[in-house]
């Protein structure tokens, strides 16, 4: 509801929603690279994108506090390394053969910028084929840091549309 004073002007009207700033094309390109390496199962190259203080998180709900709540995935840098190492054995049964995947990353918006670090929010749709085709979709939040050696991925948080479950196997890189 909007209240109107005697001058006929709106008061207490919240500011109209404003579009968020666009994302630097260089950063977008880095996120497309991340998507492509994940799609193509190029695990070790994908791993190289990550910063040391990494977080790869797939929660049940966006408001979850990971200190008290279980998630589908909550990997630090070390666990990312283990995940990749397991996939690289070629003997991770849930990914032998690997899923054939293609994902679209879209509606990219700059959420925050602080020094050398930017946060980007996007929507994604992922088509995964393994015995049958499945569609995964949701919101993905990337935090990217620019360093002397280029960009690195600090965090990737995936809010699945179907996080309420039940979910099928997520042994690929979502």
């Amino acid at each position: 509801m909007t209240t109107t004073d005697h001058t006929g002007q709106d008061t207490q009207q919240p500011a109209a929603p404003q579009p968020l700033p666009p994302v630097d094309p260089q950063i977008a390109a880095f996120l497309y690279l991340e998507a492509r390496l994940a799609d193509e199962g190029r695990y070790s190259e994908w791993e190289q994108l990550w910063a040391e203080d990494a977080l790869y998180w797939v929660p049940f709900h966006p408001d979850d506090d990971p200190r008290r709540t279980l998630s589908y995935i909550n990997d630090n840098r070390r666990r990312i390394h283990s995940r990749v190492a397991q996939l690289n054995t070629g003997n991770r049964h849930a990914q032998t053969p690997p899923s054939v995947m293609r994902r679209l990353l879209s509606n990219m918006e700059l959420l925050a910028q602080e020094g050398d670090t930017v946060s980007v929010g996007s929507n994604f749709a992922l088509f995964e084929y393994r015995n049958q085709q499945r569609i995964w979709a949701g919101r993905v939040l990337h935090t990217v840091r620019q360093g002397p050696g280029g960009y690195s991925l600090v965090s990737k948080i995936v809010h699945l549309t179907n996080a309420q479950g039940p979910v099928e196997t997520l042994a690929f890189l979502i």
């Binding site: 200190r67 008290r68 279980l70 998630s71 589908y72 995935i73 909550n74 666990r79 196997t169």
Partner: peptide
Amino acid sequence: LRRAEGAMGPAGF
């Protein structure tokens, strides 16, 4: 919690 996420569920090792 972190141990369970590593081992169990749809993305568990």
